Simulated scan of single mutants.
Amino acid sequence: MTPGAPDDRAHPHPLLPGATPATIHTWLATAEDRAGFVAEYDDALERARRELDISGVHEVIERWRRVALLQSDPAGFRHVVRYAAELATGAASPDDEPLEVTRRKAGI
Rank of each mutant, 00 (worst) to 15 (best):
V80A: 15
H79L: 12
Q71S: 08
P17G: 05
A106Y: 08
W27P: 03
E40S: 15
R82E: 13
D42L: 10
Q71I: 07
A92M: 07
E86Q: 14
R49T: 10
A48I: 02
A44S: 14
R49L: 11
D8L: 13
Y83T: 14
A75L: 14
G107H: 09
W27F: 15
A10K: 13
F77I: 02
A106F: 08
G18S: 09
D53S: 01
L15D: 08
A48V: 02
D73L: 08
L16K: 11
R66A: 13
H58F: 09
R9M: 05
Q71T: 05
G56M: 07
H58C: 05
T20I: 02
E100K: 06
L28E: 09
E62R: 13
E59R: 14
L52S: 12
P21H: 00
H25E: 15
I61S: 00
P14Q: 07
A10P: 00
D96C: 00
P74N: 05
R50G: 03
R9S: 12
R65M: 03
I54S: 13
S55K: 11
D95K: 04
A39D: 12
T102R: 01
A44R: 05
I108H: 09
L69V: 02
G56R: 11
F37R: 00
A92F: 00
D53I: 01
P14A: 13
T2C: 07
W27R: 11
T102G: 04
A84S: 11
P12Y: 10
S55L: 09
A5Y: 07
R104C: 06
Y83C: 01
R49N: 07
A31F: 00
R34S: 03
R49W: 05
P74V: 05
I108M: 15
A39E: 12
A31I: 02
G4D: 04
A88Y: 03
A91G: 03
P21Q: 04
F77S: 06
T2W: 06
P21M: 02
A84F: 00
G76K: 05
V60W: 01
T26C: 10
E97Q: 14
L99F: 03
Q71W: 09
L69R: 13
P14R: 12
L52C: 07
L15H: 06
G4A: 10
A92K: 13
L28P: 05
A48Y: 02
L99W: 04
H58I: 08
T89P: 05
T26I: 09
P6F: 08
A35T: 11
A31S: 08
L52D: 12
A39I: 05
R9V: 08
G4C: 02
A22H: 10
R78H: 07
E51P: 00
V60K: 02
V38P: 00
A88L: 04
Y41N: 09
E62S: 14
M1K: 11
W64M: 04
A35W: 02
L28C: 04
D33L: 01
T26Y: 14
L70H: 15
V80T: 15
L28M: 05
